[in-house]
Computed example of a mutant assay.
Amino acid sequence: MSLKIRINEDMKVAMKARETTRLAAIRLLMAAMKQKEVDERIELDDAGVIGIIEKMLKQRKDSITQYEAAKRQDLADVEKFEVEVLTAYMPQALGAAEVEAIVARALADSGAKGPADMGKVMALVKPQIAGRADMGEVSKLVKARLASA
């Protein structure tokens, strides 16, 4: 079952169960997916949906930080719930050892010599890791490996 179909089915289940907060979070995701399809005149595949979810997760995490700094725990709790709902649609996360193995293989395959080759390495790593690991942390790992190379 494609991710889009799964999200649509979950929306129907949330409607029938009258889970209003869950339904609202799923509808936000559905709206973002539809907007992307209309804007770019494409049919989203699973990778496209995961990209949208990653973007939404990043936005929610930024909002949580800002709400907590402003002492608005009520709004932060709403955002945290949305993060939980969105995270359920992400693929299984990779472990640190798996990420390091992928980075090591990309370094070898790209023939990277130093920090100037970061783009080459990340181009090989991103398709394998997208949605399964924090790209910021992966980027730091690649930078550290290239600096010591």
Rank of each mutant, 00 (worst) to 15 (best):
K80H: 04
L29S: 09
A31K: 12
Q35T: 15
D45P: 06
L86N: 01
M90T: 10
P127T: 10
I129V: 15
K58Q: 06
K120W: 07
M118P: 01
A101C: 08
A133V: 00
V49K: 02
Q73L: 13
M15C: 10
L94E: 02
M1D: 02
N8R: 15
K16I: 06
A32N: 12
R60E: 04
Y67W: 09
S139I: 08
L29N: 09
F81C: 02
A106K: 02
A14W: 05
E54F: 03
Q128C: 09
M90S: 11
E84Y: 03
G114D: 15
R132Y: 11
N8T: 14
R27H: 09
L141C: 10
L86E: 02
A133T: 05
A104P: 06
K80R: 14
V103T: 05
A97K: 13
E9L: 06
G51L: 05
A123M: 14
D134G: 09
L23F: 15
F81M: 01
I5R: 10
L141A: 12
K16S: 08
M135W: 11
G48Y: 10
G48Q: 07
I50G: 03
K12I: 14
M1Y: 00
D117R: 01
I52C: 01
K140H: 11
V49G: 05
K143F: 12
L141D: 08
E54K: 08
V85M: 04
A70W: 00
K58I: 07
R18S: 11
A133E: 04
A25N: 03
M11Y: 14
Q66S: 13
V138N: 00
G111Q: 01
Q73M: 13
M33S: 00
L44C: 06
E40D: 15
V13K: 07
G114F: 02
E54W: 04
L57G: 03
R105G: 08
T20F: 15
A116M: 10
K58Y: 06
M33Y: 06
A24K: 10
L124V: 13
M135R: 11
K113Q: 12
L94M: 08
Q66C: 07
K80N: 07
A96F: 11
L75M: 15
Q35G: 12
G48S: 09
E40G: 15
L94V: 07
A14H: 04
K71Q: 13
D74H: 05
D39F: 09
M15R: 13
T87R: 12
K61A: 01
S110G: 10
G95Y: 00
D10G: 01
E84C: 01
V125R: 05
V78E: 03
P127M: 08
A47F: 11
V83P: 00
T20A: 11
A147W: 08
